[in-house]
Design a protein around this nucleic acid. Structure first.
Lengths: 232, 232
DNA sequence: ATTGACTGCGAATGATCGTTCGCATAAACG
DNA sequence: CGTTTATGCGAACGATCATTCGCAGTCAAT
């Protein structure tokens, strides 16, 4: 018969409700709730496929198979493959941006930056997200729509870090080797390189990464006294 | 209707030679030389397309158009699209590896590393290669054949840097914050992130990049005296 | 001059692509 | 209840994909 196991023939439609309700937990949901959950389920399936084969290397049929949904059904939720890619980028960037919000609570400025970077690396590693990060970064270099999403989301992060360091600079806690406008994108670029490489996945111990990160960050920010460079 | 259009009569065959000779400069070449030049021409066309649209996003027809050659002709040189991708990766990694060979001539260890990284960044920026680097890095995360090429080529670079730093360590010129096995991949990852981001292409001045790079590298290698950290 | 290997063309191939559509059912509303 | 709207299926669409093939011209060696 047909290759996709998730598909259901018309004769089986009696089971339709049960089979469809299961992935949503058997609970009764409103139209809007159900729609939301289905969208999310599709996005997760798409992400799984994109991690495995990249944006261009994934076909809609593969996503359909992963989500156990037919093409016609899936297109009720997302009007195109491009929209699916954009949604994935949006979600990923948002999750990413959240990691940078916890800076303020650190003991020192250097700690704030280092902890953020480490949280980002840990998150990327634990969720096997390195391929998606790489994919988004690569696609951003040639697809304007994707770049715009990245600029919008990471622009906030950029500004957040800039403000965070700007305040520390005003308080005289740091004496950065270069202007903040240059320093922030440089740090983000380095962090991106580390995230994509997923060193933790290649056997590099977490503590070594922290040590290196702290040394490099400290050298770039140059905290003026011991307190500002304390290690927790 | 076009049954005889593609057919070339003997009268027209005069133009055939002229049209074919032009891309190779009208010069007389041996069979082997001509074959080599054609291969290179195709690789360059492929690279142009890959920079523009990525590996999966580029069709063989596009490469054919860029190389001004028919599919049948192109397949005389490369048996598949995959082989074309692998050849591009090979060439790119080799060019990349060359940049790391000029380390030995620097005044200090830190200079050696910094100059290498800067040469790499300059090369990437000037040739518009950032998208290809990103593409290769991304593809390496999911395509075993591509990763193998990267491992083979960059493995040499890795060993080269390791030896270079190892000797400096033995001479007591540096006191790295972590073992070399960890330090080298960390530096390479950071450099990769910087290369992919192409900061120079986004208006970050070259001098600032150098300053940052020197500060970070110095902090990680920790040269023991002023001479080893000199700035030229 | 003849031969055989090499090179190149471009139409054609079967597969697969993203997407659409007609149809059927389920849920919501009267 | 009947009607409408939302949801889902899966065959089918035209386009495009990587690749093949028969043919013909060029080149090197005889």
């Amino acid at each position: 018969m047909f290759a996709f196991e998730g598909y259901m023939s018309m004769e089986e439609s009696f089971f339709f409700e049960a089979a469809q309700a299961e992935p949503l937990g058997g609970q009764a949901y409103s139209r809007a709730e159900r729609r939301d959950l289905q969208s999310q389920r599709i996005l997760e399936a798409a992400k799984t496929c994109f991690v495995r084969s990249g944006f261009q290397g994934t076909s809609m049929q593969q996503i359909c198979a992963e989500a156990a949904m037919s093409p016609g059904g899936l297109y009720r939720y997302f009007p195109s493959k491009e929209s699916l890619i954009e949604a994935i980028c949006e979600v990923n960037h948002r999750e990413d941006a959240e990691k940078f919000a916890a800076m303020e609570n650190s003991a020192s400025v250097v700690d704030g930056i280092v902890n953020c970077a480490l949280a980002h690396l840990r998150f990327t590693h634990e969720h096997g997200n390195a391929p998606i990060f790489a994919e988004i970064a690569t696609e951003s270099l040639r697809n304007d729509a994707i770049r715009a999403i990245g600029d919008r989301c990471m622009g906030e992060v950029h500004q957040q870090i800039r403000d965070y360091l700007g305040k520390a600079l005003d308080r005289g806690e740091i004496e950065p080797v270069v202007e903040l406008e240059v320093l922030v994108p440089m740090i983000l670029s380095m962090a991106q390189g580390l995230a994509i490489s997923d060193l933790m996945g290649q056997g590099v111990p977490y503590e070594s990464i922290e040590t290196m990160l702290r040394a490099a960050t400290s050298a770039m920010l140059r905290p003026v006294d011991a307190a500002a460079a304390s290690s927790d």
